[in-house]
């Protein structure tokens, strides 16, 4: 073992390398046509809701009962469109988008064969999985912000802005209302962490991106249906979607934290359980695709 050969073979590893991989993962994800299409759909929801409310109330009447939370207040204050749009997209559009991106994360790469080249690069299985999960979580935040920003823009264009009334009946300034809107967006993004972990786990089980996406979205719908069946009330607190609408509690004065923290705890539980399952599966799996 000559010393010269040893030195020649050395390639120092930068400690920041993982961030390089994350950056590459983010650019790859956000340059996909599919990702952009999903974000476009999400951006379109507040536009449709805003226009619908505007048209319905153009004769001076107030919007009829029903519909997502806060919808009756939009005509008074455009900021409420942010809350309405998040309430309208959280049950389905947002988690579906997350399910597609998370389900595709590993299975899509396996399907395209690019997974084997990432692994022989070598990206490292744990690091790749962690990077993938981080990317999906960042996508949760990005998707939520797209809805919120689109809603805020449409709300500002179509309706008046100003001080607003909380659910508890107190007045808060517009600036504080904006702060609450940001908090709500963060709470909504955090509500999606469980779906993200579940989708990533499903993604490690199959070599087909489409199958993983379909399974994740299917699970999402199933859980939401089960959450409506009264006989299952003992199980329902463990459904990832059970506390989703707790974000509305951020509009109370003072804020009612009970369900919000339950929601965060539940999402963390899902992240730990399905994250570990995904790790156990992915680090021992034979990569034959």
């Amino acid at each position: 073992m000559s010393r010269a050969e040893v030195v020649e073979s050395v390639r120092p590893v930068s400690p920041l390398w993982t961030f390089g991989l994350l950056r590459s993962e983010l650019t790859t994800t956000f340059r996909r046509w599919r990702t952009l299409a999903l974000l476009a759909v999400l951006a379109a929801v507040p536009v449709l809701v805003g226009i619908a409310v505007k048209m319905e109330t153009s004769d001076g009447s107030s919007p009829g009962g029903g519909g997502p939370a806060f919808i009756s207040q939009i005509t008074n204050n455009g900021l409420f469109l942010v809350f309405t749009a998040l309430a309208a997209t959280l049950p389905f559009f947002l988690p579906m988008a997350i399910g597609v991106v998370a389900g595709d994360a590993i299975a899509g790469e396996a399907n395209a064969g690019t997974l084997r080249y990432l692994l022989v690069a070598p990206a490292g299985r744990s690091r790749l999985l962690l990077t993938k999960y981080a990317t999906v979580v960042i996508f949760c935040l990005a998707a939520t912000l797209v809805v919120a920003v689109s809603a805020l823009t449409v709300g500002a264009l179509l309706f008046p802005l100003g001080d607003l009334t909380t659910i508890s009946g107190t007045q808060i300034s517009f600036a504080e209302g904006l702060g609450r809107a940001l908090l709500i967006a963060l709470a909504v993004a955090a509500s999606l962490i469980g779906v993200a972990a579940l989708g990533l786990f499903v993604s490690t089980l199959t070599g087909s991106g489409i199958a993983a996406m379909a399974t994740t979205v299917g699970l999402l719908i199933t859980v939401q249906i089960l959450d409506q069946i009264p006989q299952l009330h003992a199980l329902q607190p463990y459904f990832f979607s059970h506390y989703w609408l707790s974000f509305a509690d951020l509009m109370r004065e003072p804020v009612y934290w009970d369900d919000l923290t339950k929601n965060l705890g539940l999402q963390a539980l899902y992240a730990v359980v399905f994250g570990s399952a995904a790790w156990a599966r992915f680090t021992t799996k034979d990569i034959t695709a």
Partner: peptide, 13 residues
């Protein structure tokens, strides 16, 4: 190629 190179921990960015 940039994508694959980013996946290599020993590759100097």
């Amino acid at each position: 190629l940039i994508r694959y190179d980013s996946a290599d921990p020993a590759a100097d960015p």
